[in-house]
Design a binder for these strands. Sequence first.
RNA 1: UGCCCGAUAGUAUAAUGGUAGUACGACAGAUUUUGGUUCUGUUUGUCUUGGUUCGAAUCCAGGUCGGGCAACCA
Length: 555
Amino acid sequence: MSEERSLNFLEEIVEADLAAGKHVEIHTRFPPEPNGYLHIGHAKSICLNFGLADKYGGKTNLRFDDTNPVTEDTEYVDSIKADVRWLGFDWEEEHYASDYFDQLYAFAVALINKGLAYVDDLSAEQIATMKGTPTEAGKESPFRNRSIEENLFLFTAMKNGEYNDGEKVLRAKIDLASPNMHMRDPIMYRIKKTHHHRTGDTWCIYPMYDFAHGQSDSIENISHSICTLEFEVHKPLYNWYIAQLGIFPSNQFEFARLNLTYTVMSKRKLLQLVQENLVDGWDDPRMPTISGLRRRGYTPLSLRNFCERIGVQRRENIIDVGLLEFCVREDLNKTALRRMVVLDPIKLVITNYPEGQSEILKGENNPELEDNGGYRDLPFGRELWIEAEDFMEDAPKKWFRLAPGNKVRLKSAYIVSCTGFEKDASGKVTAVHCEYIPESKSGQDTSGINVKGTMHWISAEKAETAEVRLYDRLFQVEDPSSEEGDFKSYMNPNSLEIIEGAKIEPSLLEAQPGEQFQFIRKGYFTLDSKLSASGKLVFNRTVTLKDAWSKEMKK
RNA sequence: UGCCCGAUAGUAUAAUGGUAGUACGACAGAUUUUGGUUCUGUUUGUCUUGGUUCGAAUCCAGGUCGGGCAACCA
């Protein structure tokens, strides 16, 4: 028996519809507007749409909602497709709302013929004013009762380019007194003499979202059209168009969009960060975009697991970014190769290790894997690099690392005993001295000595150098959007720390973009796909390791 | 002050009139050649006031709080 996992509310709806025979097979769609890059909120929608179809043996389309040529571009189309694929999903059919422009035009003519649409000459401002307010009914346009013939004639003229942008619109004739603002004679078509990224200059009138989305769903026989909560008020209109047109009744269902702590998720805000150069583009590793997370080192599986764990409901929510970090650690712990890298190096001199002598030790690739994932060579010698923070002259309680008189294990090597250190004129520690215990060699330890601390290290002679970039949260408050004033004033000034001279072990020279590593005791890292060049490696920190010691220190 | 939606530990998410459970977090312990991993345990919750019922997180009514709606954006 499979484990009993309770259904989310969308799965319940689908199961009920299937059980009632409302649909033989379900069909969903992911409908982005190609006007920006996908972010992790979209990942939730993608996982929901594809996940639903997957679970119930249905299909999912990818459809670009490209009804506004002013903001859209093929650059975005391409990045969206790449991101969906990278997440691990494959769509059944690829569509564009613009493929339906002829059909949508015919739908509009049909509504005119039914006396349910009219051409309005009012300006945008006048239409807005006459729409009234949520508490006040709107007023009818003086053009509302034109004859069907006149409307047909004018709409054709609109299509033929005889009017300029803003001179005329086509409106649905519904109810100016509706408590739902979207039902107060919504605009169906507007004139935009703008080049469209797919239809070029074929059209100068373009359908509004409301006059395109439901019909596109219907044309594709989408059974469950799921979208975020802000479209809830559009649902009556979505249904109205379908009913008046008498076409396949797709149904809309809404869920709460994803919010994450310490970041922003709206396209508008993300665009601002990019345009004002506050980040290094849409794929800056600090961005919550799919491309940013990918560059940061997040894996598709970790993102899918995250989307599964956060669940789906209709209430507003803000997910702790810690859960995202948990998900990527969970995945990377099982797959990432272990390597040793010293970020802030100081010398460790093993005074009883003969000068000029060296040896090759073996380091396990991943203790979580069978046979430890194999081994790689670790050159060892008299002088090593160790992390400056791993030595303290006056150590606090529970300090398991190096301090005068302390013993520690050098990972995969020997136990050493700290015998002294050197300081420069300013009092800064420049080197640590120790003696090693020859019979404590890793794997063949006969010393009988137990130590509490284990440290990473690099042979000073064989060390290579790389740049390492440490990322922290982009904002210093949990929910920047809910704070007073400009959200950008809450950005974390220390969200990027660049370390130029990190000491890396030789095997890391062969690192490939997309490969994940655990730098032992430091976190998970990946090669930056953009900044790395031959001869210059740049590693991005995906996430730190859980750190019980720093937590202990804060007490 | 119109209409619509929502409210369960710190954060999410279950319980579909019948024992409030799970995950992340936090805390404590065991294991550990990563202060990692793994394992064990502990902690904290049904917005409020009434009502229906043998029994209410769940149904009903009032209130409170939060979100959405007045783009020729999606």
